[in-house]
């Protein structure tokens, strides 16, 4: 898809009129996701009960692709179990890296329309920001063996290098890389 059509058909709507860009009344888990190299910054909020994502929202600022991708993601993961959401994130990362199967891409539904971002290395980190942040939150929950999202989550950071190029090797300490 040509870039302008991608913006026109998918990104602009979610960027200018996001459904889930707001604060949740009672999130059980909140995490800041940052792309330091471009200043994308989202505050992802999940409300998880008995292992199910009951509600999801985000706030913050960033480019249209990061905002739209986070909005599409929130739309999709509401109602999913945390493991389903994690699988969805893996499919999305796989799509961006070019390793996802046809079935995985189909399962991504509207998010699959961001597939062309995989040809724009500089914008990959924008598209995956929300998904990486969500994966880390659920990773923390699973680590701590709780189901209600009461696990603690602190700020996070990317190593910067990894996200611009899906083949890049991360620096030690980077916990967010799609690779």
């Amino acid at each position: 898809m040509e870039l302008k059509s991608l913006y026109r058909e998918i990104v602009n709507e979610h960027n200018l009129h996001p459904t889930h860009k707001k604060d949740l009344a009672s999130p059980t888990m909140v995490l800041e996701g940052v792309n330091p190299s471009c200043g994308d910054d989202i505050n992802l909020q999940l409300q998880i009960k008995d292992g199910v994502i009951e509600d999801a929202a985000f706030n913050g600022s960033g480019c249209a692709i990061s905002q739209a991708s986070a909005d599409i993601m929130c739309d999709q993961i509401i109602g999913m179990s945390k493991d389903q959401a994690l699988r969805q994130a893996q499919s999305f990362m796989g799509m961006i890296k070019g390793t996802a199967t046809k079935e995985q891409i189909e399962s991504l539904d509207e998010a699959a329309s961001l597939q062309d971002i995989s040809h724009m290395p500089a914008r990959v980190k924008c598209a995956v920001l929300g998904w990486r942040t969500m994966s880390e939150m659920i990773g923390k929950l699973n680590e701590e063996g709780v189901t209600d999202g009461s696990a603690s989550a602190s700020g996070q950071d990317t190593c910067g290098a990894c996200a611009t190029n899906s083949a890049a090797v991360c620096k030690p300490g980077c916990r967010q890389c799609p690779v």
């Binding site: 870039l3 302008k4 913006y7 471009c38 600022s61 960033g62 480019c63 249209a64 692709i65 724009m120 500089a122 914008r123 924008c126």
Partner: peptide
């Protein structure tokens, strides 16, 4: 956002 400006 400037990154969108540059991409466009």
């Amino acid at each position: 956002h400037p990154h969108d400006v540059a991409s466009i």
